[in-house]
Write a protein that binds this DNA or RNA. Structure first.
Lengths: 240, 240, 240, 240
DNA sequence: TATGAATGAGGATTCATTCAT
DNA sequence: TATGAATGAATCCTCATTCAT
């Protein structure tokens, strides 16, 4: 053993420590991801009530107790999935902002992205219902609920910017863009939620399909937003 | 024993039976009503998960077992409240049909009724979320789910008729009235649902209030439905 | 590498080792003390069942695993507090032995010390209850239980010496001093234990206060021990 | 079928109902007794911590849930055993009151009964330790703790009456009988508790046996209570 | 029909202890 | 030696549902 060797060791240690710390961080994150994935699978399949922590634990090859190191309760795990879903949606919506299109076309694109997201992840919408149950609410820290809200706001922000853009460019009437964004967001969400709610609605009676319904809602909204002009008749036709 | 004896008995019984049957029917209905009332109180206050059959039983002074004579499961009891709510809403909506107004004004009235109903019974909207949970679904007979759907259809029927009337009277464009009714129903419902969902949404960020939001959505919808005419500009102003 | 090198190293190490060993010893003792202090705080506040190793670890800024390097189990940690308490009591009692007083006065002093100790550390008495639970006992090494007993014996030894002194000096009757010490010890201990046991006893019903009760018990005991008057013969008979 | 028959039936029903009610009462009581018996067996053998509700349930051939119909928690079940023990002791003590003996002799008898009780049921004394743990306390209704206290007071009442009798008959000095009863009760209890506490104490070091110890304590107490000779004045001064 | 005692599977959560680093 | 993440058995308790009366 030489001093150099020792120093090397010292050097290596520092490197090792750094690596260790990094790995720990990565492992933590991955562990959390593993749990979320497993939770997603089970909650999506079984719903909240019938899902057991045992099953989630089995699904990610961890001990049940380990889950509680990462999530305070079954409810928090559930709400975390909601946060996850809103994050994914936000990311998808953000891909629109950069496109070089007119505001009204951007809204159309938004709808496309939204609808595509729904088709990829219909279950995320089902998840959102439970958060309003008072008994669930009680068992989730405010902090987490706030995060949830923050994600939703980020989504609405995308809409907000498009409406502002339309207003600036003169194709939208001067409206309170933020109120308008909320209305659009709520409406889209509400329609999907309602639609998703019930297979009966969806399959047997409501022969209108979801995409059409959303498009129609958008047309109506655009009808309200757009500054009417000679092209009005053309639009009217497509809005049937 | 003779046939006459039997018939005599039969005759006597028939009166008694009739009375008994009537009383039974009345008692049954009332019993069922008592249970529903108690369930309503508890479910509204505690949510689905935290409500216990014991508490419901206590609330209607019946034995727990008795409830199961009238409702197959906790879930059926819960969904029955949804049926109840839709029935009440339908009744309220039906008070509109008879008014002698233009179709567009009728839609405005509908919204008023709807909103008033929501304000009286906000909890009914919260109830509806859970029905989409697969584990709840599994424990409710199709028959009951159908009843639920039927009530919703009856509500939409009111909208349908108004739209048809508007189309007939020439103030609405020729649209598929049924599709349109569904869109309006879904949108209104969706918005309220979404709004009701979350105190956060309601109180802190979404400074738009619900009634405004619904009115705006209706304006947009009317914008799409109404046959444009010189009065368009006037309408545009009010739709801001 | 040469032997000299090794020896050199050995020599250097020996100094270092000595220092290290000393420091280690000191650190070890302090570590153990830290843990005990934290355990004391938590156990005293929460009781045995509700105390968690996590909380103790947090209280002494050590990792949970580290505690297990110093104490084999939660139970040993608990019993160690009992040992600690008996050690403190023994030390207090030992301050009496040196006083130049009559045996009967010494016993009075003992009582004062004892009572003062109880008032300073009432919680130590509460701790002692659990040691009799078979499930606790099973999880503590005999060695530690013996240490516990040893401390108690040291306490009784103080009593024993006083009684022997009294016998030698002729003011106490000739009794088996050791038996007598045990009786006194057990009685005092028992009374305090019983008193400490239950807030109900203490506050509402038993209006006799503890010190009075102990004094009375001592008077009784002294009545039995003292040779004080002509009536001695009569009493001696009955006091077997 | 005759009217008489029907009336008979009516009569029988009332009888049946009476019988049913009685049987229900008896069954309830027995059920509760069954549970207590099983709990006694398990708690006595294993201690509080290692006892599981499952094991208790198995021991009385009832479902776990059933136990909770009769006892609110594991802790209440445990404390109920304490109540039971005090009740048994009280009953034993009450057999003394009727004897036609002098007060001092009665106290001797009391001790005999007490000691016999301890020998029959040493485990009841071990049970009493846990009640002072704050975490146990928290989980027991005040009502039950009061019942516990009430039983203890009933026991002390026996002592109280004996002392009063002794005072009345002139063989005891005029003391506050209730205070005195409490001291005697606490002392006896304390000694046994202390003795029972620890097999080590009992077996290896403390060669004094329990009965001797109790007798000695009683002698001392009697020494303090009895007015027995001319030297009384002298003693009275020191025993104040 | 009404009861409500009994059920017992099932659940979430805890926490003393271990062990790889 | 110190760590603290992971463990997973163990625990108490709940509560929808049943069924004998």
């Amino acid at each position: 053993m030489t001093v150099g060797h020792l120093m090397n060791i010292g050097g290596q240690m520092s490197q090792t420590q750094k690596r260790t710390a990094l790995r720990k961080g990565r492992e933590q994150a991955q562990r959390k991801g593993d749990i979320l994935r497993s939770a997603r699978e089970v909650f999506f399949k079984k719903g909240f009530l019938s899902t057991t922590m045992d099953e989630i634990a089995r699904g990610c090859d961890l001990a049940k107790g380990t889950i509680y190191l990462y999530f305070k309760s079954k409810e928090e795990l559930y709400i975390s999935l909601m946060v996850e879903g809103l994050g994914l949606l936000r990311d998808d919506l953000n891909t629109i902002g950069v496109l070089d299109l007119q505001a009204d076309q951007l809204l159309g694109e938004i709808l496309g992205v939204y609808f595509a997201f729904y088709q990829k992840n219909p279950q995320y919408f089902r998840i959102m219902f439970l958060s309003s149950q008072p008994d669930v609410r009680e068992r989730v820290r405010d902090e987490l609920m706030q995060e949830c809200l923050g994600r939703a706001v980020e989504c609405m922000q995308v809409l907000n910017e498009i409406i502002e853009k339309g207003t600036r460019s003169g194709i939208f009437r001067k409206v309170d863009s933020w109120s308008c964004a909320i209305i659009v967001w709520t409406t889209i969400n509400g329609i999907i939620t309602q639609y998703e709610q019930d297979p009966f609605y969806r399959c047997e009676i409501l022969k209108v399909n979801l995409e059409e319904m959303l498009r129609a809602a958008l047309e109506l909204a655009l009808g309200g937003l757009l500054i009417n002009n000679p092209s009005e008749q053309g639009k009217a036709k497509s809005a049937s």
